[in-house]
Design a binder for these strands. Structure first.
Lengths: 231, 231
DNA sequence: CCTGTGTTTTTTGTATACATATATAGTGAA
DNA sequence: TTCACTATATATGTATACAAAAAACACAGG
């Protein structure tokens, strides 16, 4: 049993963690849709494990808010309302600015170089249609800023908040018209951090998130069928 | 089996959640010390349940960061280093200020009244030795501000960050010399929110958290024996 | 044709069983 | 005495078994 899974387990990883990451990705990528039930036996058969690791993975997803438990009915994929998304973006805006300002003070030469590189890569990719790579580079750019804060708690929270929006990220990156603007914003942020100019960085990141917010909300309102549930 | 636990279950609560809350409280109150092992069979016997709910509760504690898993050895209560605590307080400072500023704009008359009342209760209690009630009122004061933000995500994160420091809260509230200052700070925050004066609120909350930070760090450095592990 | 009730099925919640890895203790030899 | 090796005990990781609750279904009666 669990051949395909155990193959990945070169170094030690409990099945529950494999299942957790698998389900998590599936939810964030939209392969499991909001409202969909997570039935233990079904998932167990599908992943080739018993119910035990499935259940333990669901406990973690529950705490993370990615699934909602219904008493004696099990777990369903959590729906994100527009209000939820606004709330997340509001907090994220504040913390991204915080991270940027901290980076102004604490960034190391290596990380600054890495940041510049991520910015360059984004510029190279911005006119292609390779949205996946583009998203990756975008993540790398922001991750570098996070790393510069030297605050693990902040990094963890920011990563979580960002991932809450993964379902919508790709959608909004497909709006190629915004790439040039994103590129400019990245450059402005990079230059600000390089100069240690907190006010400039703060303003640039604020604009950056606001634009992202507007783009995502617009995208949702257009084709908000499966993605957004009423409740 | 599980007599004492089932007694509490008038309305439906899975055993795993009862166990989760029980263990969580025990860790936050310091009844389970950092580094202590959480052995499943032992806990199961102690709480009168089987290993299954214990394990599921541990999965949640793991994601919350209150326990750390050691491969094939199980869970131990997470140690908080001084760096961890500083990181938490740094993030918390930013978000508490954010909450205060949002409260300036969004607070309702009822919540404003509740805030005033919490402030008054704190004043009444500040010269007694009833530290538990004092802590409760302090929590209520801040909870009211959180509620005024109308941002559920922010509330969740702030509650979590605050709870991360529960182990140290009581310690620092026992420093009766600081009560008068805390009281003034509360009053200043309340007045600022009432006037909608964001700058004043921001400054007051900043000072409030900074003082708390210094007090906690000082308390830890004094008797940092059991509480702080090198890891 | 609709409705209410009893039965069956499905699925969760909990307990237990089994395999394996790690720690521990004990024994023997250098 | 000390080191090494083996046997044993203990605890985790996973699978399975069992009970109970909820949903689905069928059937009888109006």
């Amino acid at each position: 049993m669990s051949q395909e899974i155990n193959a990945v387990m070169n170094e030690y990883l409990p099945l529950r963690d494999v299942v957790f990451q698998t389900l998590r990705q599936a939810i964030l990528r939209g392969e499991l849709e909001p409202g969909e039930r997570l039935m233990e036996i079904h998932l167990a058969n599908r992943l080739g494990v018993s119910r035990t690791p499935i259940r333990e993975a669901i406990r973690k997803l529950e705490l993370e808010g990615l699934v909602v438990m219904i008493p004696r009915r099990g777990a369903i994929v959590a729906s994100i309302t527009e209000k939820d998304l606004k709330d997340v973006l509001e907090v994220r805006r504040t913390l991204e600015i915080m991270a940027g300002e901290m980076a102004c003070e604490r960034i190391t030469p290596e990380l600054l170089k890495q940041l510049e590189e991520a910015g360059r890569e984004f510029m190279k990719l911005k006119d292609t249609n390779d949205f996946t790579s583009l998203a990756e580079v975008d993540v790398k750019f922001h991750d570098t800023i996070y790393a510069a804060t030297d605050n693990q708690r902040l990094i963890t929270i920011l990563n979580n908040l960002r991932e809450q929006m993964y379902r919508y990220r790709l959608e909004y990156l497909k709006d190629t018209g915004s790439h040039e603007r994103l590129n400019c914003e990245h450059h402005e942020i990079y230059e600000g951090i390089k100069r240690g100019d907190k006010a400039a960085v703060s303003a640039a990141i604020g604009v950056h998130i606001d634009n992202q917010r507007d783009a995502i909300l617009a995208a949702i309102r257009e084709n908000g069928k499966g993605q957004m549930k009423a409740e």
